[in-house]
């Protein structure tokens, strides 16, 4: 994914939640939004860019949110989306 675009999107999310008066709510709002609406590969690549120091221009509130809520934001399935060819499924739908 295009990291500058991910940074721009994350910054937009941050700009909204920064309207919250309580700092903890800002960080929670950003993290929660990323978890609820971003596909795991987007979150993974944003985190990777942050770790690599290449997330240029990322707002401090996003950095803070990712630090505070790293476990939640990190995709639960690891790299499954990209590497596992299929998932077991019962072909018994309706």
């Amino acid at each position: 994914m295009n990291v500058p675009k991910l940074v721009k999107m994350a910054n937009q999310i941050a700009a909204f939640f920064e309207g919250e008066p309580e700092p903890a709510a800002v960080l929670e709002g950003i993290a929660s939004h990323l978890c609820r609406f971003w596909d795991p590969r987007m979150r993974r690549e944003l985190l990777a860019a942050v770790d690599a120091g290449t997330a240029d221009g990322l707002r401090p509130s996003v950095h803070d949110s990712l630090r505070a809520h790293r476990v939640r934001v990190a995709p639960r399935n690891g790299d499954k989306q990209l590497t596992e060819p299929d998932i077991p499924m019962a072909a018994t739908g309706h």
Partner: peptide, 15 residues
């Protein structure tokens, strides 16, 4: 549906 569903959100159209 008889399957295990992915608990993670997927890609939106622009994504």
């Amino acid at each position: 549906w008889g399957v295990t569903l992915d608990p993670e959100p997927g890609l939106r159209i622009p994504n």
